[in-house]
Design a protein around this nucleic acid. Sequence first.
DNA 1: CGCGTGACTTGATCTGGATCAAGGTGGCGG
DNA 2: CCGCCACCTTGATCCAGATCAAGTCACGCG
Lengths: 249, 249
Amino acid sequence: MQNTIGNLRRAPVNVVAGGVPALCAQCDARHIGLCDALPDDDLHFLASVARQARIEKGRGFVTEGDPARQFFNINHGTAKLFKDLPDGRRQITGFAGAGDFIGLAANATYMFGAEALETVQLCSFDRGELRAVFARFPAIERRLLDVASHELIIAQEQMLLLGRKTAVERVASFLDGWGLRVASCQGAATRLDLPMTRNDLAEYLGLTVETISRALATLRKQGVVAVGADHVISVIDPARLAAIGQAEG
Amino acid sequence: MQNTIGNLRRAPVNVVAGGVPALCAQCDARHIGLCDALPDDDLHFLASVARQARIEKGRGFVTEGDPARQFFNINHGTAKLFKDLPDGRRQITGFAGAGDFIGLAANATYMFGAEALETVQLCSFDRGELRAVFARFPAIERRLLDVASHELIIAQEQMLLLGRKTAVERVASFLDGWGLRVASCQGAATRLDLPMTRNDLAEYLGLTVETISRALATLRKQGVVAVGADHVISVIDPARLAAIGQAEG
DNA sequence: CGCGTGACTTGATCTGGATCAAGGTGGCGG
DNA sequence: CCGCCACCTTGATCCAGATCAAGTCACGCG
């Protein structure tokens, strides 16, 4: 239950003349997620209540059960969100990347844990101060409702996956979904650069590492993907991958 | 993709002097869910944009893929929400009862199907008109964000269940959760009156009917529950049930 | 350079829950 | 009253994925 963020600091609100706050200028999420709902001017107000932090790879920054004092918005990097059972079984409930909001699914205490898969940069907002932000910018609250609704859709998709899909279907679904995710930022990518280990994948898809490995081998033998070194997976046949993931194949 | 609601009608806004709209008077959800966020006066405005409908047991009223034109708020009865795979595999993503809101997890089209488990009464709101409601009552939008956040917590809990729990743990989790749910309305109940069949349960918990039956038999033999006729299950040892569901036992 | 360690793969075996099969029970229409 | 049908239970067998086991590979470190 220790404070997992040591290096929080009040964000400096340096303003480039006529531009966006320095804090936001090189933020990967400037034009997605929360902040895109605001004109540049209002962004200054938001930046003034934000603190920026850098989380090293492998470091946890949310502990399930801790009082939920802050929201987070990821600027750069990827984190995993998870829930554990007392005996160590773990379910990763999602991966959060640039623009993603962490902390919606919380009441008094966090109902999940979070850990950086790679070095993560994020903005954190005090939950109390956020009330003030809502009052001033109803657009943000509306945006949050949209975000939450979308997360609900993703969550239901994941329940279908966990409850009903086979191992190969789960892996295909994941790769297809991850492809769409990066495609929405960059162009349609054939080369996926995954930030997570096979073990993370297993904990996300409700399987074991060995089964992930075998499912990837199956997809490779079918000529659907090519498995490279260092977490790189190339999609050879995107249509087939999608079909398998949707259980149409 | 046919319209599954045949008997929608414009709700009459009969006002009992100094009271709540007649539409809302005997609504089970009057003091939970959406409407509790409003004083009686404002309720009239809300009622004026609501249509009330009655869905017979076993009747579907949302079809995945249909254009998402309305939100629903259940007044009475229970419905199941689900997602299907092309080959017929089904995952029930949740059960919605009085006060529960249906339609958050949708964008242009519904991303799930819904069907009444017992005769259901509900209010439906046109999504367009709801914009106007938001503008007039920001409290509702805030409430919806709370609702969505809470649903997100439930969804993550369910992912943990589907991805990592054993059959007996899943059934225990469900019974424990259902017990808490009815306890929050009525007092702590030892006698659970379930509206769904064993098959629904299986589709909710990612199992088969047979496994549900066996898991209940196990819990019965352990003296944790008693299985009665007609969907009645009595909780003999609530603490033990909760422990098994949380995988602490 | 050798050694230790963490991530991954592949093979052999085991097992929890699925599938297949056979009743039991109760409501309901004729 | 009977026969049908939907729902549930219990038993026998099967199998997808877990578990156990053994390597391979890349990398950091003394």
